[in-house]
Design a protein around this nucleic acid. Sequence first.
DNA 1: AACAAGACCAACCGCGAAGTG
DNA 2: ACACTTCGCGGTTGGTCTTGT
Length: 306
Amino acid sequence: MGRSPCCSKEGLNRGAWTALEDKILIAYIKAHGEGKWRSLPKRAGLKRCGKSCRLRWLNYLRPDIKRGNISEDEEELIIRLHNLLGNRWSLIAGRLPGRTDNEIKNYWNTTLGKKAQAKSCLSPSNPNQRRTISTKPKEKPTPVRPPPGPLRTKPHVIRTKAMKCTKVLMPPPSQAAAAFSSSLQNNQVKDSMPMIPLIHPHQTHSVTAPHQDNLNLTTNTTDGSGDFCAPYSHHHESDFLRDLQVGHNLNLTRDNNTLSGTSDCSLLLLDEPMLPEELNANGCLQQNFAMDLGSIASFLDTDEWP
DNA sequence: AACAAGACCAACCGCGAAGTG
DNA sequence: ACACTTCGCGGTTGGTCTTGT
């Protein structure tokens, strides 16, 4: 596993990106798509290393980037997710559509880390205190710049594995259903694929074993529509959805590049945030997933998480 | 108005994992 | 199995902006 140098430093621009460079990069990616970062600058005519191009695109130029202040809901969610995941910024960012890992990391390092630390100092043993996030407007924290190095707070960390599915191995439907449900019941999935059931406050949920060929993941929600959200590359979700539809009590379709579904249970697997268009164009997702930060936050309050 | 200190955040760096031949 | 490439992640840096004196 040798590491090749990122790029030869000679003749490459560094530092802040110019508007022209941005324009070139956007135009190139629009025309050719993302990827092949190493050769991209050469092909696009940019005097930047591929890494720099990738970072610029992901953190700043992507069309689905949400800019502006982080809302209180988002802030609360970041804190909770950080408690669970630690400094897994990309995973945290994956639950905050439109936000980048870099942005969240910066926000944590400049604001939330101090808040969280102050809070834990106040009452480290009172679990209920976690629920009371300050609703005051952003106060100026005490002028103490955190020293470089690892964060001093030691949250309860689940070491999950960030993964991107590039290949999907699907056993026949009945096996898939059984295996998946079994994994759910045994919590085997959690280690590699953190699942976030999207539930509403005060709703309990459960997973039932499949019967015959039916993937029957149900939740005891009041309206009978329970939802799970687990990481799954949306590039391959069509494969996944196709397999689910075969012989299962699911009716999920991908229509006009948007997801729609009616079923006992909508199963949405992501390891990347869905594009806002995908979310907005879908009623089910709007209802159950779209920025339902409250639901995720509620779930994080339950005892379902380890 | 001038300066210093602190805050913010885009960008860089190095590492490890995954992918490929 | 191995060597190499590519990608993605988390930590860190440094330039710019803001605020206080």
